[in-house]
């Protein structure tokens, strides 16, 4: 086992054992079980669950990520004094935290699914939801780590990370709508596709709704994606953009900490 996997292993243990990770998993277990039990319609439940995942997973990942990055600072110093490559320490901490959050989420959703024993088609849908949750976890944990590396002041770092979440989760849609209304007379489809690529939360929503084929819920951006790219290409493009959203902040973070003074 190399030093990267060791750091992943121990940061994973550390987070996985805290009450927060357990509560996080439990929350999704209770919410998904309740929705499935009461709605009776799997697809409807999935859509409700999707809205919760899209809002809460980025928020929780941001909060966990910032707290973890700032709180482990002294321990990071101790690790930096050990014979390990710098990048392995930071990448290991990032992956350890992302994995434990993603696992809590997947277990929460997965156990419900086992309890209600869905069909093959339904399990694919639930799998897609879990995949989206995992991608969002990876994206927002990475953004949170990046903010913690850019700002020494924790309050500032925390504030900006939360603002990013707020922007992606709430403000962005409003801005896009305003933009669409103002430039109503122009053909906006391509611009919309371009703009959507800048919001990972919207991208995840489109990715999963394309799979569910719930056209009514796609919204304008989703409908444009569907119309211009079709289901398959639309999914590939949104998945690709989400991966870019994971790697760019992560690489910027790793580049920043490579030369950072502690």
């Amino acid at each position: 086992m190399n030093s990267l996997t060791k750091i992943i292993k121990y940061s994973f243990y550390d987070t996985w054992r805290s009450w927060w990770a357990l509560l996080y998993g439990l929350f999704f277990l209770v919410i998904s079980a309740t929705l499935l039990y009461f709605s009776g319609d799997f697809n409807k439940a999935i859509v409700s669950l999707l809205n919760i995942v899209l809002l809460l997973v980025p928020l929780i990942s941001t909060v966990f990520g910032v707290m973890y990055a700032y709180n482990s600072r002294e321990f990071t110093e101790l690790l930096l004094a050990q014979p390990i490559k710098r990048n392995n320490i930071f990448l290991g901490q990032y992956l350890g935290l992302t994995l434990s959050l993603a696992l809590s989420l997947s277990l929460g959703l997965g156990i419900t699914f086992l309890l209600f024993a869905g069909t093959a088609e339904e399990s694919v849908h639930l799998g897609m939801l879990t995949l989206c949750g995992t991608l969002l976890t990876a994206i927002f944990t990475g953004l949170a780590f990046l903010m913690s590396a850019l700002f020494e002041d924790r309050v500032k770092g925390f504030g900006i990370a939360i603002l990013i979440w707020l922007f992606a989760a709430v403000i962005y849609d409003g801005l896009l709508l305003t933009f669409l209304v103002i430039f109503n007379d122009y053909p906006l489809e391509k611009a919309t596709i371009g703009l959507t690529l800048f919001n990972p939360i919207d991208l995840s929503r489109i990715l999963i709704l394309l799979r569910l084929e719930t056209a009514a819920l796609l919204g304008y951006t989703g409908a444009v994606f569907n119309k211009f790219l079709g289901t398959a290409l639309g999914m590939v493009v949104s998945l690709g953009a989400l991966l870019v959203w994971i790697f760019v902040p992560l690489l910027l973070f790793l580049k920043k900490v490579q030369n950072k003074d502690f």
Partner: peptide, 24 residues
Amino acid sequence: WQYKSCIGYMPQIARFPENLNMME
């Protein structure tokens, strides 16, 4: 980074991953 294997360091503030025990 390899040279650090010949150094032992005791920092001013002791803070560790909270949920591990000493032996871990």
